[in-house]
């Protein structure tokens, strides 16, 4: 088929041409890659999760007609462009290391992240991971932080990671960035962030049954009285 064969009805909407794993489709401009594929007739089982940029299921690699570079992004968060050649990556077979969260106190190890993900030491600082990240995370920087044993920085820099796996797909050193960073965040939160005293106190109070009586009173309270109490409750507007 060539471009001349356009459908009459299509002229109302602005259409663009995309290639899905090589096959050509005409789709309305203004759709996302995800909705464009659906418009073209694909029904997703894989490659579509949240539809809102939070799950990383829709990682997509594409190239535009006059570009030689491969680009990477989320299909649900990227508008289609004319001349896109697309392929979806619905699965990433990256290795993930099991660990016991109770046994990974960073104080007791020289570099706990490196113990579990030794390939982090193979990072050649090529920055390909950072370029691949659809969330614009400084991926290479957090890998380097991990290498230095800076768990806090690894955790913070990687926080917005949605586990799409594109970084690991591109990495020449086969680092499993997102799995390593997941471990870093948990270690940081558990061992390096201080615990909340307020919370500990409240848990203790509850164990002592402090609110039991008052709670039972409310549970049994007839609706009108409860309603009055609700309408008259003091609301803290500023804090």
């Amino acid at each position: 088929m060539d471009k001349e064969e356009t459908d009459e009805e299509e002229t109302e909407e602005e259409m663009v041409e995309i290639f899905v794993m090589g096959s050509r489709y005409r789709v309305p401009e203004g759709l996302t890659i995800l909705t464009a594929l659906e418009y073209a007739g694909y029904k997703f089982t894989r490659g579509c999760g949240c539809r809102g940029g939070f799950c990383g299921a829709c990682a997509t690699v594409y190239r535009t007609e006059d570009e030689y570079k491969l680009k990477m992004d989320l299909a649900c968060q990227t508008a289609v462009e004319d001349g896109m050649f697309l392929v979806q990556l619905p699965f990433m077979p990256a290795v993930r290391e099991d660990y016991d969260i109770e046994e990974v106190d960073p104080e007791e190890h020289e570099n706990i992240l490196l113990d579990y993900y030794t390939e982090v030491a193979r990072c050649v600082s090529c920055n390909t991971c950072t370029k691949a990240c659809p969330q614009d995370i400084e991926v290479m920087d957090y890998v380097q932080s991990a290498l230095r044993g800076d768990i806090e920085r690894t955790a913070e820099l990687s926080f917005d990671c949605i586990h799409c796996g594109l970084c690991s797909m591109r990495c020449p050193a086969d680092i499993k960035h997102y799995h390593m960073a997941q471990m870093a965040r948990r270690i940081y939160a558990k061992y390096e962030q201080p615990d909340s005293e307020e919370l500990a106190l409240r848990v203790e109070e509850l164990e002592e049954g402090k609110y039991d009586e008052k709670m039972e009173e409310l549970v049994k309270m007839e609706k009108e009285k409860l309603k009055k109490m609700y309408d008259e409750r003091d609301i803290k507007e500023e804090g």
Binding site: I101, F159, R186, Q193, P194, D195, S196, L199
Partner: peptide, 19 residues
């Protein structure tokens, strides 16, 4: 929330550890 703390969830906290 206490369980989440033990599992290592990274909630926003004040300097002193309270949320």
């Amino acid at each position: 929330l206490k369980w989440h703390e033990e599992l290592g969830m990274m909630y926003d906290r004040e300097e002193d550890g309270n949320f």
